[in-house]
């Protein structure tokens, strides 16, 4: 590996892909090399205007020019990921960071299981709710295991795309499954509310936990506060609205997320945490690769 940055390609030049691109521009570890779509589009034009090489030939373009990227961000659809982008990257041995709901790769949140994720080449970002809440539930359950965790997520209606709105069960169930996989919790339930208020509210997640056994709420609060702080390093708008308290014998805490307003509007914290987490994971891969390359 030469140079200080790792080249990346973004597949899917929509809102998410464009927001990712803006974040890559800022990255110390990633270089925006290629924006890939399947048709000429606003997003392709936007990337070109920014001086980024573009292609409308899909992942095939990267297959023919493998030197152009070592890390691929997939901001297309579950179908495209499963049928085209994931198999192509696997064949080329490239890392693919999946922001679609395909979830065929290892699910990852940077602050919970990145070490395991770095061992594989296809990782999935779960859902926005998963990125926002699994680290907090992890932080609670490392102090006291939970019998039950419940998440109430509310997002601005305008920030939820048709993929989420038309498949709301899939969204809540995927998030709940990730909680069970990534934290010490026996049962989990996720509830989602879309709020059309104007001005648009930020993403908000209330987390309820029924603990198993004795615990000190101060220790829980300390653990959660430390976790929130570490997330703020890559999601600046991540805010601990309510540090853990005990309400009706239930551990209760609230996090709100404002976006950075890169391409997506600032209220869309739910999307910002997805793209910011993806970039964080990409950077950790890049650092990992550079360390290995330096050996």
């Amino acid at each position: 590996m030469t140079g200080k940055k790792v080249k990346v390609a973004i597949v899917g030049p929509g809102n998410i892909g464009t927001d990712l691109m803006y974040k890559v521009f800022r990255s110390q570890y990633l270089e925006m090399s290629l924006m890939i779509g399947v048709v000429e589009s606003e997003g392709i034009k936007r990337a070109r205007d920014k001086g980024v090489e573009t292609s409308t030939e899909g992942i095939d373009y990267l297959v023919r020019h493998p030197e152009k990227a070592d890390i691929v961000f997939d901001a297309t659809t579950a179908k495209a990921h499963i049928n085209f982008n994931a198999p192509a990257c696997e064949k080329m041995g490239k890392i693919i960071i999946d922001l679609t709901p395909a979830a065929i790769g290892k699910i990852v949140t940077p602050m919970v299981n990145i070490d395991e994720a770095l061992k594989v080449k296809n990782v999935n970002l779960i859902t926005c709710g998963g990125q926002a809440t699994t680290p907090i539930i992890h932080a609670i359950s490392r102090v006291v295991p939970l019998e039950y965790a419940e998440v109430v997520t509310s997002v601005a209606s305008k920030s939820a795309g048709p993929g989420t709105r038309n498949n709301i069960d899939e969204y809540t169930q995927t998030t709940a499954k990730a909680i069970l996989q990534l934290t010490d919790t026996e049962r989990a339930k996720v509830m989602t509310v879309f709020n059309p208020a104007v001005p648009e509210p930020p993403m908000r997640n209330t987390i309820f936990g029924i603990p198993k056994g004795e615990y000190d709420i101060k220790e829980v609060a300390k653990s959660v506060e430390a976790m929130a702080k570490s997330i703020q390093e890559y999601v600046p708008g991540y805010e601990l609205t309510l540090s853990p308290i005990i309400e009706r014998d239930i551990i209760t805490t609230i996090v709100s997320i404002y976006g950075q307003g890169d391409f997506l509007p600032p209220y869309a914290g739910n999307l910002d945490i997805e793209t910011a987490s993806a970039i964080k994971i990409g950077e950790l891969y890049a650092q990992h690769m550079m360390e290995k390359g330096g050996n």
């Binding site: 109430v152 509310s154 509310v193 709020n195 208020a197 509210p201 609205t241 309510l242 609230i254």
Partner: peptide
């Protein structure tokens, strides 16, 4: 003021706090 909709009872918690 927060324009809450059905299912947002959790807002009562931090409002009180």
């Amino acid at each position: 003021r927060r324009k809450v909709v059905g299912g947002q009872e959790d807002q009562i918690i931090d409002i009180c706090q």
